[in-house]
Design a protein around this nucleic acid. Structure first.
Length: 856
RNA sequence: AGGAGCAUAGCUCAGCCUGGUUCAGAGCAUCUGCCUUACAAGCAGAGGGUCACAGGUUCGAAUCCUGUUGCUCCCA
């Protein structure tokens, strides 16, 4: 080929009169590299896109990347550190210059990798969440939501990442089981000489921030402490003992130390009981001035120190081993600390209602639908979304503060000044300062299905009107909430329409032991090495062979091996057809006629199943049907039927041409899964021009199969298999010809094929069977005269076993039919089928008994 | 603590919604025989499951209901 499909812009889509089929890619992290999850996800999208294109839709797959603020910023900081530059020594602008430099260098690697996978994206449409137009949309949406009252700024307990120095969302916290210690510490009751209350805590360093001790109001052990105070050790602070039924009497000692600054539940207790809030941690996880002790030391160092100090002062009662869950930052792996801070939030309950409705009422379909209840549960309990991040890489929050802390939300400083003026706040350009924080990356990507078509910049443009709502979204269930749900919210809010019709949720790719693939485990194969080793088509097939929607895929390289073997099989079939003996000789035209008629019917029969499974998004089932259709039906049966015996010279152009047609149809059907090989063979098969590519060919039209031929062939296959088994068991070479005897009912249509595939010399009618091997295919009787030594006893045993089986079966049928309840209650067609079973079984038994008699 | 889901051949999964298809199917793996001029990355065959367990509903249960056990995910 002179130039690639991509270069010929075959993946390109522009609005036209055809119906659109649109997918927006879940944008991968711009600095990321392809991992197994991407492979699975994008292969599925490509399969859907390619089939839609062949169905005559205007297929548009929009690629792109997101800026992944925390991950990217962390990488840039690392790069700077390697060059001996500290982020804190740089201005914001200087830092961003480095960040963009990094992005230009490494951004887009992943898109190149997707091309190697064969992804047929419209690469001209590649977008990036931080490019100007998309950023402007983000800022406009922020301002709009502020104006609508959905966004507010508030003091909240957030998940603080002390390594990343930013708040992260609940979804970015990974809870892990860890072995900790539970410290039992006693606090002296104020005004007593030797009276104590003992609390249990995992992080004893937070004692420095304690502002109360809380017990259950009905806990008799502590009833006498009502109105009393106790003394916090080390800091010697006098704090109240409060009573609240929030307390679990059974846990620890039933007495809870309350640290409102560092625990969300304690914070709520603090609000309720009006407790003082003492923030004892610095942003980077060290003890703050307010802690009063251990200032500037890391919290984990202090944890050990304070335990010793408490022991020395006689406050430590005991320690216990304790298993608990600790939150870690998904990005930096630092232990997350709950921390009070001023952040920006989206008020979710109200704005998310239509999005809940859209899924519950079926406007948007989740596949598999078991995710609907999960989605509903989350949306009904949705919490406000913390959207500010203490980073520089991202869209800077358009809020402006004056010197006394008043703020307005505005796109530019000029507009901000105007807004201050409106509020009658006197200030000036040099006195106002923009918020230092940026917006959560999801606050960009929730606009993705709209912003990639410039739906914010130009809401009435041709693209957005044509492509939106998109058709399918393919993504991982892990981000159902923090991405999918939010896109639905944004879509309904800003287009008054859903962003996509269906969401296909893939499984998570795990290793064969069921562990998630991760860098630290080192259990993930390198996707590009896999492609190198098995070919992109082989890997694509391997990925999809066993990945039912929503179920995890236990990946094993042997799947790719299977994929490669299949590609190899296709190649070999091509060789037979195009360059092998088929081009020179062929079977007699009659055999060819039957064979092609059967194969065409088989193809149509299976194509109906394939189309149906596609519609139900059962992708691995689609693949398996195609796999068997090609390998079993086409190669193992059809090609063997028409393949000429050595030395045969009969030429039959019609059969040959039909075979090419069928092979082309099979290539088309397989094309979405195996784009490279099918395209290559498509061009090898015939001399086609640059435009005549399989990727833009028309999906084969399904017509009704000839059922008589299908049934007849199944019967013939039955006979052939029995003869092959017979040879196998008797050790008769496939080269030895056999004679086949039939009775009246036998249809001769497939005789040629039986002769060929079972190496039978002749098929003759006989009144009755003499000595030899008698068998049944369906309800018909056949025999092979066989005069070599036959183990009569073994044959008798075989037939007797078969009789016993059929009698047993007949018994169960008779029992049903003899049951008055069954006959009166079962549906007529069920009864009819039982009657048929009965007569078939009776006839079989009769024939088998005859055979038995003949042997004696 | 709560919510959701899963349990079918050695492995990965269909079938279950809507009970009845010759006493459960596939792919891979296994075993047997084959280097047959498209293909040993192959060909032809074979074996392999009391459908997790216990009850119940029904003429009839892998399929519907209840309970038990084990596992996974989500959220505390």
């Amino acid at each position: 080929m002179v130039c690639t499909l991509d270069e010929r812009k075959i993946f390109k889509s522009v609005p036209d009169e055809r119906p659109p089929y649109t997918i927006v890619i879940p944008p991968p992290n711009v600095t990321g590299v392809l991992h197994m999850g991407h492979m699975l996800n994008n292969t599925i999208q490509d399969v859907l896109i390619r089939r839609a294109r062949m169905l005559g839709k205007n297929a548009c797959w929009v690629p792109g990347t997101d800026h992944a603020s925390i991950a990217t910023e962390a990488k840039v900081v690392q790069m700077l550190r390697d060059r001996g530059i500290k982020k804190s020594d740089l201005t914001r602008d200087e830092f961003l210059k480095y960040a963009w430099e990094w992005k230009e260098k490494y951004g887009g690697i992943i898109l190149e990798q997707l091309k190697k996978l064969g992804c047929s994206c419209d690469w001209d449409r590649t977008r990036f969440t931080m490019e100007d137009d998309l950023s402007e949309a983000v800022i406009d949406v922020f301002i709009d939501l502020c104006n609508k009252g959905y966004i507010y700024r508030g003091l909240r307990m957030v998940n603080w990442d002390p390594a990343g120095l930013t708040a992260v969302s609940d979804e970015e916290v990974i809870h892990k089981d860890v072995n900790s210690k539970l410290y039992y510490v006693r606090y002296k009751i104020d005004g007593t000489a030797d009276e104590w209350i003992t609390i249990a805590t995992v992080p004893p360093e937070t004692i420095l921030g304690d502002t109360a001790v809380c017990v259950h109001p009905e806990d008799e052990r502590y009833a006498h402490l009502k109105g009393k105070f106790c003394i916090i050790p080390i800091v010697n602070r006098r704090v109240p003992i409060i009573f609240d039924d929030y307390i679990d009497k059974e846990f620890g000692t039933g007495a809870l130390k309350v640290t409102p600054a560092h625990d969300i539940n304690d914070y709520n207790l603090g609000l309720k009981h009006k407790l003082e809030v003492i923030d004892t941690l610095t942003p980077d996880g060290k003890m703050s001035e307010a802690a009063g002790h251990y200032i500037g030391e890391d919290r984990f160092v202090v944890r050990k120190k304070i335990a010793k100090d408490l022991e020395a002062s006689g406050h430590l009662v005991k320690t216990e081993d304790y298993k608990n869950k600790v939150g870690y930052s998904e990005r930096t792996d630092a232990v997350i600390e709950p921390r009070l801070s001023l952040q920006w939030f989206v008020n979710m309950p109200e704005i998310s209602k239509p999005a809940l409705e859209a899924v519950v009422n079926g406007n948007i379909k989740l596949i598999p639908d078991k995710f609907i209840s999960t989605y509903r549960y989350w949306m009904e309990n949705v919490k406000d979304w913390c959207i500010s991040r203490q980073l520089w890489w991202g869209q800077r929050i358009p809020a402006w503060y004056d010197e006394s802390g008043n703020f307005v939300v505005a796109k530019t400083s000029q507009e901000a000044l105007a807004k201050f003026a409106e509020k009658n706040i006197k200030t000036n350009a040099s006195a106002i300062k923009q918020d230092d924080d940026v917006l959560d990356t999801w606050f960009s990507s929730w606009l993705w299905p709209i912003s990639v078509f410039d739906g914010f910049k130009d809401p009435e443009n041709k693209d957005i009107k044509y492509y939106y709502p998109t058709n399918d979204l393919v993504t991982a269930p892990e981000i159902l909430f923090f991405w999918v749900a939010r896109m639905i919210i944004a879509g309904l809010e800003y287009r008054n329409d859903i962003p996509f019709e269906r969401v296909y949720l893939t499984g998570i790719v795990r290793d064969k032991l069921g562990r998630k693939m991760s860098k630290s485990l080192g259990n993930s194969p390198d996707p590009l090495e896999l492609i190198e080793k098995y070919g992109a088509d082989g890997v694509r097939v391997g990925m999809l062979l066993s990945s039912p929607a929503g179920n995890d895929l236990l990946f094993d390289e042997s799947y790719c091996e299977q994929g490669r073997n299949f590609a190899n099989k296709m190649w070999n079939a091509f060789r037979l057809i195009k360059t092998g003996s088929l081009t020179h000789h062929c079977v007699n035209p009659e055999t060819g006629r039957i064979a092609t008629a059967w194969m065409k019917s088989k193809l149509n029969e299976q194509l109906a199943l394939i189309n149906d499974s596609y519609d139900k998004m059962r992708i691995s089932e689609v693949l398996m049907i195609k796999y068997k259709l090609f390998w079993d039906d086409f190669c193992a049966w059809y090609l063997e039927m028409i393949k000429p015996a050595y030395g045969s010279v009969a030429v039959d152009t019609e059969t040959y041409n039909t075979t090419i047609d069928i092979f082309e149809n099979l290539l088309q059907i397989l094309h979405p899964f195996m784009p490279f090989l099918t395209e290559e063979l498509w061009h090898e098969l015939k001399n086609r021009n640059n435009r005549d590519c399989i990727i833009v060919s028309t999906w084969p039209k399904q017509s009704s199969p000839d059922n008589a031929i299908l049934e007849g062939m199944t019967h013939a296959q039955n006979i052939i298999s029995t003869l092959r088994t017979f040879r196998n068991e008797k050790g008769i070479s496939p080269k030895t010809q056999l004679q086949l005897l039939t009775k009246d009912k036998h249809q001769t249509t497939f005789d040629d094929i039986i002769l060929k595939l079972a190496n039978v010399s002749s098929i003759d009618k006989a009144e009755s069977f003499d000595k030899g091997f008698a068998f049944m295919a369906g309800t018909q009787e056949y025999a092979i005269p066989f005069d070599q030594h036959i183990d009569t006893a073994a044959e008798r045993l075989r037939i007797e076993k078969e009789i016993a089986y059929n009698k047993g079966f007949l018994d169960t049928v008779m029992k049903k039919l003899g049951n008055a309840n069954f006959v009166s209650k079962a549906k007529p067609e069920v009864i009819a089928s039982e009657e048929k079973k009965k007569s078939d079984a009776e006839q079989k038994i009769k024939s088998l008994e005859q055979q038995l008699n003949m042997m004696s």
